[in-house]
Design a binder for these strands. Sequence first.
DNA 1: GTACTTATTGTATATAATACAATTTATGTC
DNA 2: GACATAAATTGTATTATATACAATAAGTAC
Lengths: 246, 246
Amino acid sequence: MSGQIIPNLSVDCVVFGFDSKDLNVLLVERTLTDKQNHSIIFSDYTLTGNHVQEGENPDDAAIRILNDLTGLHDIYLEQFHTFGRTDRLLKGKDQLWIHSLGLNIADHVITIGYYSLIDCTSVEITNHLSRNVKWFPVNDLPELAFDHVEILLKALERLQLKLKQEPIGFELLSEKFTLTQVQRLYEAILDTTFDPRNFRKKISMMKYVIPLDEKQTAVRHKPAQLYIFSRDVYERTRKEHYGFII
Amino acid sequence: MSGQIIPNLSVDCVVFGFDSKDLNVLLVERTLTDKQNHSIIFSDYTLTGNHVQEGENPDDAAIRILNDLTGLHDIYLEQFHTFGRTDRLLKGKDQLWIHSLGLNIADHVITIGYYSLIDCTSVEITNHLSRNVKWFPVNDLPELAFDHVEILLKALERLQLKLKQEPIGFELLSEKFTLTQVQRLYEAILDTTFDPRNFRKKISMMKYVIPLDEKQTAVRHKPAQLYIFSRDVYERTRKEHYGFII
DNA sequence: GTACTTATTGTATATAATACAATTTATGTC
DNA sequence: GACATAAATTGTATTATATACAATAAGTAC
């Protein structure tokens, strides 16, 4: 099952989550300690990634990583870009880190970037191989290793684009959600604000966002109506768009 | 300059061109002949691709391939997807072909897909390493090697998407062009038709499509006005679009 | 019952998309 | 020079979508 790794090929997953307010991303702490005196040489964060194994499809490598991390199956996953610059692992800290691992890693590693969308209310992120895994708002990131800032920004850009084309945002919400949650989600991802009346008008045109006979409970204000997303209805009612943009 | 190749990493370029009627793609003939009796074992087509070299950025590998093929510099180039399924080179013909080359190629080759847009009136495609290189309409393709059908379709899909977001179509036209040419181009790429009045209304909103004091010559009908595209004006007048699609 | 908090709703206006056909201007021919 | 030919060019009415804007409703907490 756990075969040899391919030394020059990895995948990195930009795992997005939404907490009713911010768009967040899962990051893994990377701390290099001095083996003699156990002092910390540096500490920063990486995306969740790993090498592809011999005989493994890259998509499956990404699925494997996500499953290791979250225990979830059927996570929304999309390849968005491949990063292969020859200098992408050559910064000082990164070289120290790679050498400290003593692994079979090539000088020139190509990494295939995926982003995934998860409903973070459904997962308790378990620390992974005794490394610290945490959510960070995309607007308030810690220092990142390698070229992971570039990867993350590209993932975000592609997520924004995709969100304008397909109703993928619901992957980030619980099965039942309120329209205000949807609005906050779109606002967080697209980094803008919408008028609630106009936003709801748009949602009401989406036949695949279906109201339930159910309301929020345990809130100290007017409880909102709950909705579900039906991919089925979406597939049957989606329209083609031939327009082009000025 | 020409170093060792990386055995498990290649790039493939889907080179699009437009001939005033069809969207075309450049393909390279692949003919396997029997070394004994020189009979043809099979003949089909591949995309233009090659292995990445040690120490070479994948983007530069794609640029190198395009330059070898066309002699052009500054070709519009965009990475669109990476194809890494373990079975992508395992079909019978493909295995015969790979073994006949006797090269250092891994069983599992990951290829990074790029598409490029060229003005085919400005290039005479030179046959490449004595292999036959030809334009084919994307609607009438010959048999393709490896997973190149999948790669080509994905490239086309991404080209369509990009065309709806940015004015990249002009890369496929000569410096000076007519509005009818632009319309035919959009129609060919998006596989639809537009009403000329409505289409021109949209174009007239694009301040970066600039009329010249010049008309078509040597045509046996009313000569059309010529236009140029200004990337400069585009960059200065582009708008942000926050809408999302039903 | 009163304060508080968020959910929910409608209308007028501006902008963009669509549907649809007659006229213009060059070339080539007689 | 008149005429046929072929593509280029243009306008208006209608519909659909996007935007701007604020008052009321329905729960909980006290």
